[in-house]
Amino acid sequence: MLDLLSVENLSVRFHDQKVLRNINASFKKNKITAIIGPSGCGKSTLLKTLNTLLMEDHEANIEGKILFDNENIDKIEKEKIRQKIGMVFQNPVPFPLSIYKNMEYALKYYGVKKDERKMIIEEKLKVTGLYEEVKDSLNKSALKLSGGQQQRLCIARALSIEPEILLLDEPCSSLDVKNTKNIEHMLLALKDQYTIIIVTHNLFQASRIADETLFMLDGEVIEFDLTENIFNHPKEQRTKEYVMGIYG
């Protein structure tokens, strides 16, 4: 199986504090990888590093290599990388614009023609299951949508520019069971077209949707294996304690 994204000896420091320590991992194409671990173990930082968003943080010091399609991302323009590696944040962040304009935002930037834009927007809203709910009110402010709808809009927006990888940072943490289920179903359906990396606190969620799971602790990768192995036959004692809920 092809590794679309891989990380070699990645370390991140904020001043004297090391947040990520020597991370090595490869993320496979068209698979869902879950990153699990207790709060503050560096999951979100790892995700932000992957699409170079962490470089916007002036205090972060990044060392190591990130390879996208076997090419070092240092050598590619940041904007290009971010176009290929989309990201969805923990709390939904719709722009203070209408639903349609939220979806149109990046497409306009990339110069997509009006008719094509309309097609893409409709398609992506359908993929995220939002189309039926909002088709009559596309000009309504996105801020008026419910939390779950906002998050699905953000996912649709991230997909509008056809990234190859989708990074999700605890996308369901502020959602109820029903909305979480919606998003999980959607992610499973999206797997064929996109490579998905999801940070989650919810171990059940990881076991339900992920093909592979990466367990992190204190900025280090403790174990990275098939989800089934992580949850049923962990090699490391710390992984075992975490998935059994003894720890973290």
Binding site: K78, E79, K80, I81, F95, Y109, A158, I161
Partner: peptide, 15 residues
Amino acid sequence: VDINLIYASLSMGVN
């Protein structure tokens, strides 16, 4: 301005 809005925009490769 909410920094997350800016990040959300930048994360799509928008300058």
